[in-house]
């Protein structure tokens, strides 16, 4: 029983962070049809940026968050503007190669400025633990779940209710029709990258807080792929469900079976899903009406 509770807490915390990281990926794919292989590096950059503001510059927590969000937005917009926009109309393979190049570039820049050794950052979330049904569960995992849930809910409301969120989904559906409504497709593209940057920043900071500020953050970001393949490349709810399933599966495998296997299992899921249900659990199929 206590193992189960622990698996749930750790698994949901991992899953929540994965969902946030995958959200950015899905936003970019949905709005701009770009498969962003640099999403993991966005986490890395986000965490280091926050580290710089919080530890190096010594800003108070809230100010550091604001700085992080602003810089993440700017990076997202710049990447769209300088790297992806000139690629509009190129083949998907070229665009994928460009994002792979971008991922190496971002990683190299981080190494250049910060080296490869882990940075120590004071913990933001309380480090105590609570006792739930006989299991000792670290408080920070529970708070990670809470923070991610709040952020994901905010994003969902944004897409369902706000004018800009609906415009983003409209562009994802039919760019030309969106243009006839006076929606600027370029601005929506920029917005998608900016939001991806922000969600990656939040994921990166949460992840760094429960692990460490180091290069492994990008490796964790690689798990975005099993998550989005499982949830469906273009589904926002799919990222949440996919993230949670992958997070839980990983922790359950590690606890009940074999920790080594746990690092492989997400990719086993990836292959299986591609074989059985290539659009994922929630992927949009084209609506056909005649």
């Amino acid at each position: 029983m206590s193992t189960l509770v622990a698996v749930l807490a750790y698994g949901l915390a991992d899953g929540a962070i994965l969902a946030l990281a995958a959200l950015g990926f899905v936003l970019i794919y949905k709005a701009t049809s770009v498969i962003n292989f640099a999403q993991g590096e966005f986490l890395l950059v986000g965490a280091y940026m926050f580290y710089t503001a919080f530890v190096v510059m010594g800003l108070p927590l809230l100010a550091a968050v604001v700085v992080g969000v602003v810089v993440a937005t700017i990076i997202g917009v710049l990447v769209e503007r300088l790297i992806l926009r000139p690629m509009i109309g190129e083949s998907p393979i070229s665009i994928i190669m460009v994002t792979i190049g971008l991922s190496s570039l971002l990683r190299a820049v981080v190494q250049m400025f910060y080296g490869t050794s882990p940075k120590s950052m004071p913990k933001i979330l309380p480090t105590g633990s609570v006792n739930i049904l006989g299991a000792t569960v670290p408080l920070n995992r529970l708070l990670v779940i809470l923070v991610a849930a709040v952020v994901l809910t905010a994003f969902t409301i944004f897409f369902r209710r706000s004018r800009h969120g609906i415009a983003m989904r409209a562009v994802a559906d039919d760019q030309q029709a969106a243009m006839t409504m006076g929606i600027s497709v370029r601005r929506i593209f920029a917005m998608a990258w900016a939001l991806a940057g922000v969600s990656a920043l939040i994921a990166g900071v949460l992840l760094a807080d429960i692990s460490a500020v180091d290069q492994n953050l990008a490796a964790f970001g690689l798990l975005v792929f099993p998550v989005v393949i499982l949830g469906g490349l273009d589904s926002v709810p799919g990222t949440i469900v996919g993230g949670i399933i992958i997070g839980l599966l990983k922790q359950a495998t590690a606890s009940y079976w074999d920790p080594g296997l746990a690092t492989v299992i997400p990719y086993v899921v990836l292959v299986l899903i591609l074989l059985v249900k290539p659009y994922g659990l929630f992927g949009e199929t084209r609506i056909e009406r005649v």
């Binding site: 409209a170 994802a172 029709a177 949009e284």
Partner: peptide, 11 residues
């Protein structure tokens, strides 16, 4: 109003 209606299908 474009030819072929072009409603946002998933909205």
């Amino acid at each position: 109003c474009m030819e072929g209606r072009h409603v946002f299908e998933h909205l």
